[in-house]
Structure formats: structure tokens, C-alpha cells
């Protein structure tokens, strides 16, 4: 673990999520996000990253999913099983992977629709300062924005929710590398200037680890490795499988790497 203060901003303890009452998606997931930090949650497709984020940000009745074990603590308060809007108003705001803007509303209306949280951290002017392009497109329908602009609008409206912790799901998905770089830099700026902590869920491990302080690796619904960015980057298997810069000469298979699973819980 990196330097972990006594009470992290967000803490997950052994969280288990079950879909449709029968399908376990994640199990025994524990992680902490300290204040003012950027934490990356890495993993392949279907590893349970999005489920973990959704568990934190809250499920709806229609999702037919629930946290059946463990607890989620935000600023010392247990928020397990709360409705998404209750979580959001506490300052824990999600930028979802898809369906992230209201397409039939204009950019301005997207920002107006937000119900701000309890603390006042960000003003509308600051948001337009970070995302000047949104100010220009204020009257356009969000449905006509490009992928990068949509992501900016999603970040901007999440910011207006006054987050202390932003949960960002696949910031890089479907975007050009140059835009990903800009957005990642922006995330870092938000943390540095506003003090917003960020939990980044990414398949693009290289982009995430470039800005993160610490990271977790999720596989098959379990945390299998964690540590500071330096520690993660030093791990041979992570370099091989997530960053593609390993030095192995033999082509090992993903499932062959035994020591990789050392943290798996068997009970």
C-alpha cells in the first residue's frame, strides 16, 4: 500500500456483488482511496471493474444487482446499498462508461440538470474554465457532440455535482490517444487544483498509471494485486499483460502465472 492515512476517503471492505440473485460478479473486493489521491483500478474486460464502481455509486431496482456482503464506507459513513442520487449528493460522483450525457438536452441544460451536492467546491465559471469548449457549445444538443466533447461534458456535469471523489469509468474508451492524454492531464489538474480525489477504472493501464498514485488489479471479480504505481510498474506480469512492455522471451499464458494470484481468497 502507499502511504495510507488513518481514515481514507473511500473504503471498500470485502464487497461482494450478485446480479439477478445468482450471478456473482465481484467477491471480496477491498480497496481504499485516500484523500486527494488518484487511484487506478485495472483489469481486463469482464473483470468486475464497472460492477465495483456501480456498487459504490449505487444500484437501481431495475439493475437487479445488490451488494450481498461487505461494506462501503465514504468519509466514515456506510453507504452500502444507497440510491445513486443519495450517493451523488454526498460528494461521490460517477462518470459512467457509456450513456454519460443527456443527448436530447443542450450542453447548458445538461449542466443545469445537475443537483449539486452538499458542499460547494466548484463553480460554473471554474467548470467553463477547465472545459472552454463547453462554453462555446452551450446551446448545442449534447447528442451532436464528438466523443471527446461528450467525455468533457460528462466530467463537467460530474464536477458540478461537487464531488470529493470522482469515479471515472473508462475515461479513454473510444477516444484518440491525444485526447486521452489531454483528459488524463485534466484529471490530474482537477486533483491538484480542486483537491478532488479520483478512482480511475481503466483498461488502458498505461494511460491510467501515468497519472495515478496507486493502483489495484482486478481479475475474475477479485483483487489480485495492489500497490503504488512504482510497485505495479515493477511487476513483471503487469508489465507483460497490461502494459505490453514485459521482457519475457517465452510466450507465457495469462493463466499460467501462478504467483500472480497470491492474494486470492479461498474461503
Amino acid at each position: 500500500m502507499t502511504a495510507s492515512p488513518a481514515t481514507p476517503l473511500l473504503e471498500l471492505e470485502n464487497v461482494e456483488v450478485v446480479y439477478h440473485r445468482v450471478a456473482t460478479a465481484v467477491q471480496g473486493v477491498s480497496l481504499r482511496v485516500p484523500e486527494r489521491s488518484i487511484v487506478a483500478l485495472l483489469g481486463t474486460n469482464g473483470a468486475g471493474k464497472t460492477t465495483t464502481l456501480r456498487a459504490v455509486s449505487g444500484f437501481l431496482g431495475g439493475d437487479d444487482a445488490r451488494v450481498v456482503a461487505g461494506r462501503i464506507v465514504f468519509r466514515g459513513e456506510v453507504i452500502t446499498g444507497r440510491m445513486p442520487h443519495e450517493v451523488a449528493r454526498r460528494g461521490l460522483v460517477l462518470v459512467p462508461e457509456r450513456d454519460k450525457v443527456f443527448e436530447t438536452l443542450t450542453v447548458g441544460e445538461n449542466l443545469d440538470a445537475v443537483v449539486p451536492g452538499r458542499r460547494r467546491l466548484v463553480t460554473r465559471e471554474q467548470v467553463f474554465h477547465y472545459f472552454p469548449v463547453l462554453a462555446e457549445r452551450r446551446r448545442q444538443l449534447a447528442g451532436y457532440l464528438s466523443g471527446g466533447e461528450r467525455q468533457m461534458l460528462a466530467l463537467a456535469s460530474a464536477l458540478l455535482c461537487q464531488p470529493e471523489l470522482l469515479l471515472v469509468d473508462e475515461l479513454s474508451l473510444g477516444l484518440a490517444p491525444a485526447i486521452v492524454e489531454t483528459l488524463m492531464a485534466l484529471v490530474r489538474r482537477l486533483r491538484d487544483e480542486l483537491g478532488t480525489a479520483v478512482l480511475l477504472v481503466e483498461q488502458n493501464a498505461a494511460a491510467a498509471l501515468a497519472v495515478a498514485d496507486a493502483g489495484y488489479v482486478l481479475e475474475h471479480g477479485r483483487i489480485v494485486y495492489d500497490g503504488s504505481v512504482e510497485r505495479l510498474l515493477a511487476h513483471e506480469d503487469i508489465r507483460e499483460f497490461y502494459l505490453g512492455v514485459g521482457h519475457r522471451t517465452d510466450r507465457v499464458r495469462y493463466t499460467d502465472v501462478k504467483q500472480y494470484r497470491r492474494r486470492r481468497r479461498w474461503f
Binding site: 445513486p84 442520487h85 450513456d99 443527456f102 443527448e103 460530474a158
Partner: peptide, 21 residues
């Protein structure tokens, strides 16, 4: 009213933006 339109389009996202849909 804007929130009503928002929630009508995407209830989940509206909820994640703090709207009690």
C-alpha cells in the same frame, strides 16, 4: 423541468447526477 426531461431520457444517469428520479 429540465431534470424531468433528463430523467426521462436516462434515469440512471440522472440519478447519478443527484436527481431523485
Amino acid at each position: 423541468g429540465i431534470r424531468m426531461r433528463a430523467a426521462g431520457e436516462r434515469a440512471l444517469l440522472a440519478s447519478q447526477r443527484g436527481i431523485n428520479f
